[in-house]
Design a protein around this nucleic acid. Structure first.
Lengths: 350, 350
DNA sequence: TTGAAAGCGTTACCAA
DNA sequence: TTGGTAACGCTTTCAA
């Protein structure tokens, strides 16, 4: 088996089964109205010849493909990767493939990725990215292609938006830390120029204002990496502001924040408490384990897939799905419940 | 701009420029022998109409595509992800796209991914996986498709193999620890049933034998995740064998090993030393920072790309490229040089 | 229930 | 230097 050097075509399968390519195509696409006997012969021939359809020919002829596009801001951040893996799992189960691009949060790269993908005649595109500008969304909404966006400020018609209430999560974190008597808190983020991230920072600021003037705060930002988190923490601490709690925009950066604190001899949580966001697998492996807000990435990936493939409600103006982050308490804020079950709702996968 | 609802075709571009589709195609593919004036007109038309070629039509007509397939054992492990990102960078620069699949180390999934990819008429496939069986390699070598494999035991004709001398790296680690007077060492791995991983474990065992009977050793294995590393460490420690050094098959698992040791009140490096493999970015962020063996993933990704796209030496029986891992010393083995420059050769990217 | 044949958007060969 | 046109492998009417 697998002996042939040249790809087997539908025509050969058809000939082998003694039918026309039309019939062979019908069988292989699960169309009804084919005699059971014929169907069996075609299937047998396909298997015998180890036939695998030429997706290019198929896409060209039918005008649609079973390939989805996914654009991520930062593959290196496990948050994005998990959403991707989850979509991929759903896609594979349904016989779809994924084409992935990443942008490093650069709006131009988003546009060029989109352009490259537009030549692929995809079945849909998921924008799991923070650099989605309104203009892009608008122009996309004119096309027939199914589109789904992560956390878009103002979704456009015909575009599904999957929203996470970051402000709710942020408020929960601030309130929790406030209840622990923290008075000087800082926020560590990245790419504050991009709307969704701006908004998260804003949520922090507003939550803090609620406790002013007794509570002070500061913010810092750098790249979305552990290195970036470390840098941001360094900037913060060098500025003279000495926070007793640092809230990070995500767990990935928090890893670096923890490192910098340790490097400076600051103990966590005794001297400084730290929180993250996302509840990535790694957040259980930091020292100390990280208090964070859970975002159910496995659910989100499936939501994306469903939005693109079974876009049930394509008639609705825009089908939004809203998710609220939940607080997960671990050692980095002082209370250290058993680390072994720090996972509330979303399932962590191996 | 981007106003059109339906995709623009080559024919429209040609009409707009007042030439035939043949000429338009020639211009867009950079063929020589087109009058400068005509070329400019076509280019202008393409830009004006925001043309993006239908890759399916193009692939079907030409029989080749600018898409590469990549199969990874475990995307979650940053080692594989880095190789992927590096290939992706090289690919994007050259106008190629990547289609990625991952297998969780299951040979059957490797085969089914390969089959799915075979319908895509790819420009080449990179197997960055440990579960590549000889039979698969042999059948692949009959096809005309360029193939490159990571660390294959016995590469087949026409298949490029990119090899890392894990045994050399492992020996270096063992020798280093031996020079530090460690007598009881353990190896933590995963999927010992797969040849390449079997070999790494074997390298450990043989290196240890060299010091027998004065030196004792033990091994344990679990999944290729931090959780798996933690499990393996737990098994090891519960077995009664008390190693003074644990060598991990990779950094990703080492993260979990460090966690389990800490959980049990064992200090690293005072009570137990730990080493990893790969030198992933995260290895500088563990507590303590991880001694490891650097594997230049950025170089490897580029090697893969070049092997597939500019397969210069396709005439040679098999063009192997050999890489030797280099020891990177950090805190987890006791000597803690400045963490800020623990990176010998390979550049770490943001 | 099946087959013939007209595309789908490119590429590439052959003429002009 | 250009244009006409036959593929490429499949899907999908339309007839039979």
């Amino acid at each position: 088996m697998l002996r042939q050097n040249l790809p087997v075509t539908l025509e050969e399968v058809a000939r082998h089964a003694g039918v026309s390519t039309a019939t062979a195509s019908r069988v292989l696409n699960g169309t009804v109205g084919v005699r059971e006997n014929t169907r069996r012969r075609v299937l047998a021939a396909a298997r015998a010849l180890n036939y695998s359809p030429n997706i290019h020919a198929s896409a060209l002829a039918s005008g649609r493909s079973r390939i989805l596009g996914v654009i991520l801001s930062n593959v290196e951040n496990p948050f994005f990767l998990d959403v991707f893996r989850s979509m991929d799992e759903a896609a594979t189960e349904a016989g779809y493939s994924l084409v992935m691009e990443h942008t490093s949060y650069q709006p131009e790269r988003l546009v060029s990725s989109l352009k490259a993908m537009s030549g692929m005649h995809l079945a849909g595109v998921a924008l799991v990215a923070s650099e989605v500008e309104q203009g892009v969304l608008d122009s996309l909404s004119r096309r027939s292609l199914p589109i789904a966006v992560y956390d878009a400020a103002h979704p456009a018609p015909h575009i599904t938006s999957i929203c996470v209430r970051y402000n709710v999560g942020m408020r929960r974190a601030v309130e929790y830390l406030h209840s622990l008597r923290h008075k000087r808190m800082a926020f560590v983020g990245h790419h504050a120029g991009l709307a969704p991230l701006q908004e998260r920072k804003q949520a922090f600021v507003e939550s803090m204002r609620q406790y002013a003037p007794k509570a002070e705060f500061s913010t810092a930002e750098h790249d979305d990496t552990p290195q970036g988190g470390r840098q941001a923490a360094a900037t913060l601490l060098d500025s003279g502001f000495s926070p007793t709690a640092i809230l990070c925009v995500n767990d990935f950066m928090a890893i670096g924040v923890l490192r910098e604190l340790r490097e400076r001899g600051l103990r966590v949580p005794e001297d400084v408490s730290v929180t993250g966001f996302d509840n990535i697998n790694l957040s259980e492996f930091t020292v100390p384990a990280l208090t964070t807000l859970d975002i159910p990435r496995w659910r989100i990936g499936r939501l994306f897939f469903d939005a693109l493939v079974n876009h049930q409600s394509s008639t609705r103006f825009s089908a939004d799905t809203v998710i609220e982050p939940e607080l997960v308490l671990r050692g980095s804020t002082g209370i250290a419940p058993d680390h072994r079950n720090g996972n509330p709702k979303s399932r962590q996968r191996p």
